[in-house]
C-alpha cells in the first residue's frame, strides 16, 4: 500500500511537471510579445481575449493546422526525429530540479521535486547537452544550406559555452560541498551565492544566454544572414517543437540561476511560501532574458567565439581558483 501511494505521488508529480512545462510556452510567447511591444511603445496583441491573452492559443491552433512540409531531398527519418530529440532533453532535465522544500499535504510530507540526485548538476549539464544532437540532425537532414550553416553555428556555440558554464558552477559546488541542488539551495539559507560568486554568476548568466540561444547570442537562427538557421525548413508542429524546446531551455536556465545563485526558495525578508518566491524569482529572470532580447543587437560570429574562449573561460577558471583559495 505504501509503495502504491509513493508511486502514485510520483506519477502525479511527473504529470504536473510535464503538463506545466508543455503549457508554459503559451504564456511565455504572450509575455515576450507584450514586452517587445512595450519596449517599442506598441501594445502588442490586444484583440484575442483580454489584452491578447488568448493569442498564444490561436497561434498554437494555427501551427497545428499548418501544412507539415518535408523537403523532397531531405532525409525523412532524421528530419522527423530531430524535433523530438531536441524536445526531450529539456523535459528530462526537470526530473532533477527542486521547486521548493517539503510541504505537508493531508498529513503526509510531499517533496516538491521528483528526485534529489546527488549528481543533479552533472546530470543537468549532461542531459541538456543532448539537445544539440537534435539541432545538428535538423540542420543536416533538411538538406538546405541555411539549415546546415545554422546547425554548425549552433553546435560550435553550444559546445563553446557549455565549458565556461560548467566551470562557473564549480564555485557554487565548492561552497555547498555538494552537487545536489537541494543541498545547494539549503546552503544558501543565509547569504545567497551571488554575494560570494558575482563573477561566477556573470559567467553563468552570459553562458546561459548563449545556451538558450537568446539575443545577443542568437546566432544559430540569425534571421538576417541565415533565414532561420536550423529550423528554416520546418513548419507546423515540428517547428513548434523546436520553439517549445527553446522556451523550456530558457525556463531551465532561469530556474538554474535561481537555484545556484539566488537562493532558490529562500528569502528571509519576504514572508511568502517558498515555492511562490521561487516562481517569482524565475519569472523575474525570464523577464530579464526578454528585456535583453529587445535591447541588444546580435554579436558577430567571431565575437561570439572570442567572448566564449578569451573572456568567459579565463574568468571562470580564475573564479574557481579564487573560490578554492578563500571560500572552500
Amino acid at each position: 500500500m505504501e509503495t502504491l501511494f509513493a508511486i502514485s505521488v510520483m506519477v502525479i508529480k511527473m504529470a504536473v511537471v510535464i503538463g506545466v512545462l508543455l503549457a508554459l510556452p503559451l504564456p511565455l510567447t504572450w509575455m515576450e510579445r507584450k514586452i517587445a511591444a512595450h519596449i517599442q511603445q506598441r501594445l502588442g496583441p490586444m484583440r484575442v481575449g483580454w489584452h491578447g491573452l488568448l493569442q498564444p492559443l490561436a497561434d498554437a491552433l494555427k501551427l497545428m493546422v499548418k501544412e507539415d512540409h518535408i523537403p523532397e531531398k531531405a532525409d525523412r527519418l532524421l528530419f522527423t526525429m530531430a524535433p523530438i530529440i531536441a524536445l526531450v532533453p529539456p523535459f528530462v532535465v526537470f526530473v532533477a530540479i527542486p521547486f521548493g522544500d517539503t510541504v505537508t499535504i493531508f498529513g503526509t510530507p510531499v517533496t516538491l521535486y521528483l528526485t534529489d540526485m546527488n549528481v543533479a548538476l552533472l546530470f543537468i549539464l549532461g542531459v541538456a547537452g543532448i539537445e544539440v544532437v537534435g539541432l545538428i540532425l535538423a540542420g543536416w537532414a533538411s538538406n538546405s544550406k541555411y539549415a546546415l550553416l545554422g546547425s554548425l553555428r549552433t553546435c560550435a556555440q553550444l559546445i563553446s559555452y557549455e565549458i565556461p558554464m560548467g566551470f562557473a558552477v564549480i564555485g557554487v559546488i565548492m561552497l555547498a560541498g555538494s552537487m545536489s541542488l537541494v543541498d545547494i539551495v539549503n546552503a544558501q539559507s543565509g547569504w545567497w551565492n551571488i554575494v560570494y560568486q558575482p563573477v561566477g554568476f556573470f559567467v553563468f548568466f552570459v553562458a546561459a544566454l548563449a545556451e538558450a540561444q537568446r539575443i545577443p547570442f542568437d546566432l544559430p537562427e540569425a534571421e538576417g544572414d541565415l533565414g532561420a538557421g536550423f529550423h528554416t525548413e520546418y513548419s507546423g508542429m515540428r517547428f513548434a517543437f523546436f520553439m517549445i524546446s527553446e522556451y523550456i531551455i530558457m525556463v531551465l536556465m532561469s530556474v538554474l540561476m535561481v537555484i545556484l545563485f539566488f537562493g532558490g526558495w529562500h528569502a528571509s525578508l519576504i514572508p511568502l511560501p517558498g515555492s511562490l518566491i521561487f516562481l517569482l524569482k524565475v519569472c523575474f529572470l525570464i523577464w530579464v532574458f526578454m528585456w535583453f532580447r529587445f535591447t541588444f543587437p546580435r554579436y558577430r560570429y567571431d565575437q561570439l567565439m572570442s567572448i566564449g574562449w578569451k573572456v568567459l573561460l579565463p574568468l571562470s577558471l580564475a573564479n574557481i581558483l579564487i573560490s578554492g583559495m578563500f571560500f572552500a
Binding site: R42, W291, T295
Partner: peptide
C-alpha cells in the same frame, strides 16, 4: 537597458 526599461513603462503610441 535603462533606456529600454524606460520605454517599457512609458506611454504607448498605438
Amino acid at each position: 537597458l535603462a533606456l529600454t526599461l524606460g520605454y517599457m513603462f512609458s506611454r504607448t503610441i498605438t
